[in-house]
Computed example of a mutant assay.
Amino acid sequence: MSEATFTFRVDDILKDEFATAAKAHDRTGAQLLRDFMRDYVRQQQNAAEHDTWFRRQVQIGLDSANAGNLIPAEEVEAKFAARREQTRRRLKSR
């Protein structure tokens, strides 16, 4: 693995507080910054993967709807009205 130096400006107070907090956990600031960078990259990759998956699912739904694979609203309403009633009866019998 090749290494590169990452230089940036930070307030002296923040730098000192960060170094103190890192030392309290037996870590150096550099170790924590590398960990934070890895975590951030991983989060961004996960978010991008989820976005790709979500967009694919939406497209599948749109394609299905455009192909006419739809359930009338009245049918959906009736089905869930029956489920709600069944749940009410079950709760009442307890």
Rank of each mutant, 00 (worst) to 15 (best):
F6P: 00
L62Q: 09
F18G: 02
A24T: 03
S64F: 03
R88A: 11
T20R: 15
A4S: 10
A82W: 04
N66A: 10
F36D: 02
D12N: 13
D35P: 00
Q57N: 08
R89Q: 14
A81S: 08
M1T: 06
A19M: 12
G68W: 03
E3R: 11
A78C: 02
R38C: 12
R88M: 10
A65V: 10
L32Y: 07
E49F: 01
D39M: 07
F54S: 03
T87H: 12
A4P: 00
R42T: 13
M37C: 12
R9E: 10
R94L: 14
A81T: 12
T52E: 10
F80V: 09
Y40Q: 08
F36I: 12
D35F: 07
T5N: 06
Q59D: 12
E85H: 14
R89T: 05
M37V: 14
V41W: 08
Q31L: 07
A21C: 06
R94N: 07
H50K: 11
T28E: 06
R27F: 02
D35N: 03
R42P: 00
M37L: 15
D63Y: 02
K23T: 14
N46M: 12
N46A: 13
R56N: 03
F36G: 03
M1G: 15
R83S: 11
A78T: 12
Q59F: 02
H25A: 09
L70S: 00
L32D: 02
